[in-house]
Write a protein that binds this DNA or RNA. Sequence first.
DNA 1: CCCTGATTCGC
DNA 2: GCGAATCAGG
Length: 184
Amino acid sequence: MSSSNSVFAKAGSVWSEARVERLNALLLQGLSASQIAKALGGVSRNAVIGKSHRLGLAGGSPPSPPGRRATIPARAARPRKAPVPRCPRPPTPEPPSGGASAAAVRRRPASVVEAIGRVADLTALPRRACRWPIGDPKDAAFSWCGASAPLGPYCDDHRARAYRATPVRVASGRAPAGAGRCAA
DNA sequence: CCCTGATTCGC
DNA sequence: GCGAATCAGG
């Protein structure tokens, strides 16, 4: 049974857990696929989009902001080789209930820095401060690490999680939003 | 022409 | 599952 190599994305894979975390964080911030792609590095914008779709964070077509697609998804991609009559697409059941989804609150900043400036008041985070997103950016309690990160965008603790695919979970799990603070 | 995301298919 | 290619719109 040589099933497909469904080896889940782990350390070593393109999308490690840490990578996916960043992808989610940046996506929630409203960064564009290209921005995220460049932020992560090594991945193309299409890769980011594809991954976001697989994660279930399929954009959401923000109709409000100027530009950025506002069309129906009933478009057929290029006929690569054969028209292969696939199954008819379901009329996309709309789950409008519950709270606002990630795509519902996404904004459209021009850059990461801009996103940081608007989401959280990081006026005190000019440089060498850990930029690890804590909690949901859309949450009022959202905050950034802010610990000393002289070697990179993240502090020692988060750097390990960002660059290493080792999900070093804290003893009691993850720190709750708001309480996210790195011991400087 | 630039950008964006969405979709599909092949690997 | 991942990503290039392509489409489509602003």
